[in-house]
Design a protein around this nucleic acid. Structure first.
Lengths: 243, 243
DNA sequence: GTGCAGAGATTGGTTGGACCATTGAACCAC
DNA sequence: GTGGTTCAATGGTCCAACCAATCTCTGCAC
């Protein structure tokens, strides 16, 4: 019943182009930031129309693998390999308060798990790297009176990387991007993120001590402060709406 | 420093087309399975080239929002709204054992959180629906001697839906799809999933009792059995490789 | 009337060629 | 050096045509 024959693919020019391109990138060992051949050259080499090449590249662009700059060229944005799997997610209505809270629920689950895994798996090098980011962040926090969102984010990314599972970084990064696209200065809360500051070091301490459940608990506390900030911000907005 | 000027957007034909199309879908109240206007008609109405329309539709196709059938037409595959946000994830090398384990780590985090939230938020109607799916699954399990993966999945989906956060279903569904695309009969383990069977009811019991931490604990046990099956399957594969 | 084969229309897929808009580098005047 | 100019390269858009799969409708055989 379920073992139906997959439909034969009589035409799949786009996919063939992408497959060839992925192979090319692999062979040439191209990394992020490097330039791909021009559309015209690709079309000529692959013996397909430039239009077909463009549709294929449009797919990759939509997946965030590639960036096209008119007048300049097409550049890799991420590592690509022939055995990639794609998982496009679309969330409708994410740009309101409820949507933000929903992304935070996901982040809470993943952040806690990543911290726990990190405490289990991080080696000396990874722990040193995390501590470095933490120091930078704390410096920035003191110097710039609390404005350290960039350094804050780098700390978290270091944790995700040390979890040994790149999916954590990918998923949370995507949400982080959404978060910031619509809420540059989140909800008018000036000291947004202040409350979460101390938990960065407590998380690090638990990771360094290889204490997964401790790390998980501290991560949950951190997310709780962010949720709190968000709710306060939402309250602010409601006040503004009433004026 | 951080408040740099964002680059102005001088041209964005594709996006404009997609925006217009999203508006059209909304106005016409089109749902999944329904047919969109022809590419030629869209090109004419929007006063753009058919080529531009195609690039825009290629984007949507890559995002899984739309399906194009040659000779037939273009059909909606999911609900689209003008305020969608896209989050394409790409995992390289996901079709091996390590890749599967990585997706399971994500699923463990999300499954536990979803079960906990479900225990908090599920109303009577949601609980009844989950129990219905559970009964169906248990019936199928007994009748077909353990083959109940489809009904199993529906049970989990009901839990995700009752969590009040559609992101859980979206993310886990995407992973579930990857899981099954490459492992129709996972790793040759015949009774794959048998061990997880009893935990479905224990999860339901904790949800029905509005016991979030209990539900979380049972969900974790369930995922643990799946990981176990996977490891056993990997061991099988290694034996096969050695022959 | 029923059922089916086949012609024709419809629709997405592909091609080739043309032109526009932006970019970046080479060049030049000051 | 600085600042403009020119010019070739490159992605973005457009057009017109044809191919390939699909759908629809007609008309014939029964």
């Amino acid at each position: 019943m379920t073992d139906f024959l997959p439909p034969i693919q009589t035409t799949a020019r786009d996919d063939a182009v992408l497959k060839a391109l992925a192979g090319f990138v692999r062979q040439e060992a191209l990394g992020p930031g490097e330039k791909l051949p021009t559309e015209r050259i690709l079309a000529e080499r692959l013996k397909v129309s430039r239009n077909t090449v463009r549709e294929a590249l449009t797919r990759w662009e939509g997946l965030g693998l590639v960036e096209r700059r008119q007048g300049s060229g097409t550049y890799l944005k991420a590592v690509v390999s022939p055995d990639m799997l794609h998982m496009p997610l679309t969330l409708s209505g994410g740009n309101d308060f409820a949507g933000l809270m929903r992304t935070l629920e996901i982040r809470r689950a993943l952040e806690a798990e990543a911290a726990a895994l990190c405490a289990i798996r991080a080696g000396k090098a990874e722990i040193a790297e995390i501590e470095r980011k933490l120091d930078i962040m704390e410096d920035a926090f003191k110097t710039r009176a609390g404005m350290s969102s960039e350094e804050d984010w780098e700390f978290h990314q270091a944790v995700y990387r040390a979890s040994g599972n790149p999916l954590f970084e990918q998923i949370i990064s995507a949400m982080h991007e959404l978060f910031h696209r619509f809420w540059e200065h989140p909800l008018g809360v000036r000291d947004f993120g202040h409350a979460s500051f101390p938990y960065h070091r407590t998380i690090f301490d638990r990771i360094a001590a290889h204490d997964p459940e401790g790390a998980r608990a501290e991560a949950l506390k951190l997310i709780a402060t962010v949720e709190d900030d968000l709710k306060r911000g939402a309250a602010n907005l409601k006040l503004l709406d009433r004026r």
